[in-house]
Design a protein around this nucleic acid. Structure first.
Length: 566
RNA sequence: CGGAGUGUGGUGUAGCGGUAGCACGAGCGCUUUGGGAGCGUUUAGUCUGGGUUCGACUCCCAGCACUCCGACCA
């Protein structure tokens, strides 16, 4: 490709609003352009990279035995109604209607479509297992897009779905995909953590996220010292330290307490005790059932809403309660009791068993209760793990420290079980001639997000340093403008020769640009090798070669140069 | 969806209740050519709709868009 003909330009300045390096460099380098928030044009340069990432994934999938296909982008809404995901899907579905009044969802994930196509055929256990996948544009009505390609409303995703006779067979595929995914991310130049995660609205029992550590990531997860336990904050288990478990239980009392004592900090100050000695109530409302949920937890811990939803089996349904909600159960913010409210559900965190003689739980304007003991003075019908883990907490067995990390979720694999096949009555015939529901898994990778994540992890102050596998071009020939006609001819000859043997080359043939501008662009775009041809290099009949990832330049004869680049 | 903020040439920005300025880019001419070069010249702008005012880019209201925080989120 000749750079003079390349559509899309680099820019010297870019809005300071673009904080994520991937966002800034991809825009500045002319890889992508914003249409509206969360929707991007991929310019020719960005398309080159995207195609290469697609190729890496496609090759890996095909090698694993999966088969590529494609579903329509418009999904009949009835399918989503079959699985009851029109309202419960965590993301708002984008809906539309054709002029005959048929309703569709713009695909955001494709479980229903795939199950639907599979159930159109009479399939025997002999046909199983199989794994079908696609690359397709996904639409998600994200409330807030951010960070350029890191979180968007429309993006290319590889999503695969495997079908099995039972869990045992499925597990082989799950394990295989875990390896395939790790190899894909390695080829893309990234080290991914395999993180136990929450299933969310996809359904099923367990799943893993592949997370690349990064400052600009949104996934928070924990890693044990030996690296064997890696879990997302929404599922991370940890040991609650025993605060004063040996203390003797004292007599329950209601005592007076100054009116200024309102927050957790206030009580800690007033009683001169750590916040772990107090009871805390966090109130939620189930937006589907309207039920009020009161989560009671040790004062120094926080409730993890996702864990709470898992415990109550109401994924995505909880929201913070408002003052009006509290009124309905006869109280107001700051005066929620740990027992006694009618028409609401109480859930306790395991931490309530680590403290004797809690303070709090029955706060009124001028009084509160002290020496409150869980199990003696109050007890909730549910006690479970609903607390947020924090950096430095111990693993469940108490043997290792957990380190908190932040990263970008670049892919994930899900166990779906018979969640979809049973809801959609998708069956195969087993060896006894009986209809059985498929046992399923699904596997996703967002292409644009991977592209952004590569930039997040492969850049310096001047621009992107693409891994060779997915660099837009392997070689960037930079011809420095000169009176010497020979410079142009030498550059053109080298370009023709490399292109002739199938090397991917970008040739900066632009006239009237200074060396500085050309070098700055080359650094920004980030091709793996830069070859400079100028009057100076020609003096010795040499070519200057520099790897983008290294500082030093080499002067090579054409023969040696071709050996490196071919 | 709640809170905050911002909207000025293609891009990045300044400014003021009274003629809208700078830089980059783009076009042309000349010069220059190893880290975003110089001179001259041309080009192009106050988000939309109302209101206040003699006069609004500026103040007020509404809408839209974008950014940030929260909520939400394979």
């Amino acid at each position: 490709m000749k750079q003079s003909k390349l559509f899309g330009k680099t820019t010297k300045t870019v809005s300071k609003d673009l904080k994520a390096p991937s966002h800034r460099f991809l825009i500045q380098g002319g890889f992508i352009a914003e249409s509206v928030a969360g929707r991007y044009y991929f310019l020719p340069l960005g398309m080159k990279v995207r195609d290469k990432i697609v190729k890496v994934i496609e090759d890996a999938m095909n090698n694993s035995g999966a088969e590529k296909m494609i579903t329509p982008v418009l999904h009949p809404l009835e399918l989503w109604q079959e699985t009851n995901r029109t309202s419960t899907a965590g993301f708002e579905l984008m809906r539309l209607e054709d002029r005959r009044g048929s309703e569709f969802a713009l695909g955001g994930t494709a479980e229903e479509m795939i199950v639907d196509v599979v159930r159109k055929y009479n399939i025997s256990y002999k046909d199983l297992p199989f794994h079908i996948y696609q690359f397709s544009q996904k639409f998600r009505d994200e409330l807030r897009a951010r960070g350029g390609l890191l979180r968007v409303r429309e993006f290319l995703m590889k999503d695969g779905y495997s079908f099995h006779v039972d869990e045992e067979d499925f597990k082989k595929e799950y394990e295989k995909m875990r390896q395939v995914y790790l190899e894909i991310f390695e080829k893309l130049g990234m080290d991914a953590f395999v993180v136990e995660a929450d299933n969310g609205y996809i359904g099923g029992d367990y799943c893993h996220e592949f997370v690349v550590e990064s400052e600009n990531g949104e996934s928070v997860f924990f890693v044990s010292e030996d690296g064997k336990y890696v879990a997302h904050e929404d599922v991370a288990k940890f040991k609650r330290d025993e605060i004063n478990i040996d203390e003797q239980e004292k007599e329950f009392e209601i005592i007076s307490q100054p009116e200024w004592v309102k927050t957790m900090d206030d009580v800690a100050k007033h009683y001169k005790l750590p916040t772990s000695r107090f009871l805390k109530n966090v109130v939620y409302k189930n937006r589907v059932s309207e039920e009020i949920v009161i989560a009671t937890i040790r004062g120094d811990l926080e409730v993890n809403k996702t864990k709470l939803e898992q415990v109550l089996d109401c994924v995505g349904a909880l929201e913070e309660a408002t003052a009006e909600d509290l009124e309905k159960i006869g109280t107001k913010p700051g005066y929620v009791h740990a027992w006694g409210h009618e028409n609401c559900k109480y859930v306790a965190d395991l931490s309530l068993k680590t403290v004797k003689n809690f303070i709090g739980g029955q706060k009124e304007e001028k009084t509160d209760s002290i020496n409150v003991n869980y199990g003696r003075d109050f007890e909730h019908e549910i006690i479970d793990d609903i607390a947020l883990a924090k950096d430095g907490f111990l693993t469940e067995d108490g043997k290792q420290k957990l380190t908190q990390k932040k990263g970008i979720e670049v892919g994930n694999i899900f166990q779906l079980g018979q969640h979809y096949s049973s809801k959609m009555k998708a069956t195969f015939v087993d060896e006894k001639g009986e209809d059985k529901f498929y046992y399923m898994g699904c596997y996703g990778i967002g292409i644009g997000r991977n592209m952004a994540t590569v930039v997040e992890t492969h850049h310096d102050e001047k621009g992107i340093v693409w891994p060779e596998e997915i660099a837009p071009f392997k070689v960037h020939i930079v011809e420095l403008v000169s009176d010497d006609e020979n410079v142009k001819k030498t550059a053109q000859d080298l370009y023709d020769e490399l292109v002739g043997v199938g090397v991917d080359v970008l040739y900066d043939d632009r006239a009237d640009l200074t060396a500085g501008e050309k070098f700055a662009d080359a650094d920004l775009i980030g091709c793996s090798y830069r070859v400079v041809i100028s009057a100076k290099t020609l003096e010795n009949e040499k070519f200057e070669l520099k790897k983008r990832s290294e500082q030093d330049v080499e002067m090579l004869s054409k023969e040696d140069l071709l050996k490196v680049l071919k």
